[in-house]
Write a protein that binds this DNA or RNA. Structure first.
Ligand SMILES: [Mn+2]
Ligand SMILES: [Mn+2]
Ligand SMILES: [Zn+2]
Ligand SMILES: [Zn+2]
Lengths: 132, 132
DNA sequence: ATTTTACTTTAAAATGATTCTAAACTACTT
DNA sequence: AAGTAGTTTAGAATCATTTTAAAGTAAAAT
């Protein structure tokens, strides 16, 4: 599908800026990236975009389900083009994230959910360090 | 054990400020808290401490193993007096964390660890929403 | 006990990611 | 073509956290 249609289906007005971002994010392999990473790629593609617009677009893309945000980073927001339900390896030395598809993990035993609540999602992070 | 000895054992010089914090954190039940939460409790106990010192002490307490930091919060750092290896429920509406002791979870299947690395810890977060 | 040394606390300034503001611009509707 | 609502932008503002450098304090050396 063309990116302009992905935007329209997501309920986003297809502006020049959103198309530039869609062309970078929505084709090609999945990736994890920061707002600044994306701005650098925009520059590298010969375009310009204010950092405010980069943040605005990322928020809109996320709220409409075109991307996700990784909930495991303190200093800088990390976004994810993989919108499936999945988990992550975290290289503790470099901060690099690697996807773990959901069917690679099975939880054999879960704690009892506090009463009045229901499980709305499980996030698993496996931290990695270099083998000595 | 007295808190002054806990500090000494941890290799921390027992200053007036560190003892005030130790008295708040290291006795009583476990808790999750921010730097500002702690500063408020220090005030409530009739003492004063600059926010810079609160952050400094928390970093020292953490590096010497007296507390931990929860690696799952974007805006504000959350610290944890529970230093055992454990997991968390996250109430998505309130941000409240609840401990899950490690023996309440069993991972039945794990993905293959990328070669050259070893598993240095698994963090599991079970997100909760109110039952309808 | 006094001096010396290294470590700690503090207020205030600096930092850095993110959000907000308000004016200029643009996509979509009429 | 004109009108309306949504978008982009530079720059200011925000907020958690860190840094700075001067003053204070605990431990070590005399
Ligand atoms: Mn850059
Ligand atoms: Mn407060
Ligand atoms: Zn991912
Ligand atoms: Zn905990």
């Amino acid at each position: 599908m063309k990116n302009i249609d992905k935007l329209r289906r997501a309920g986003l007005r297809p502006t020049k800026q959103r198309l530039i971002i869609a062309d970078i994010l929505l084709d090609g392999p999945n990736r994890h990236f920061t707002a600044e990473d994306l701005q650098d790629e925009i520059c590298a593609s010969g375009n310009y975009m204010s950092i405010g617009t980069v943040y605005n677009c990322l928020k809109r893309f996320k709220n409409s389900g075109l991307i996700k945000q990784v909930e495991y980073s303190k200093d800088t927001a990390i976004f994810d083009t993989n919108t499936t339900f999945h988990h992550h390896f975290l290289n503790e030395e470099t901060g690099e994230l690697i996807d773990i598809e959901n069917d690679k993990v099975i939880l054999g035993k879960l704690p009892e959910i506090p009463s009045g609540f229901l499980n709305s999602g499980v996030d698993i992070i496996i931290k990695l360090k270099k083998h000595t």
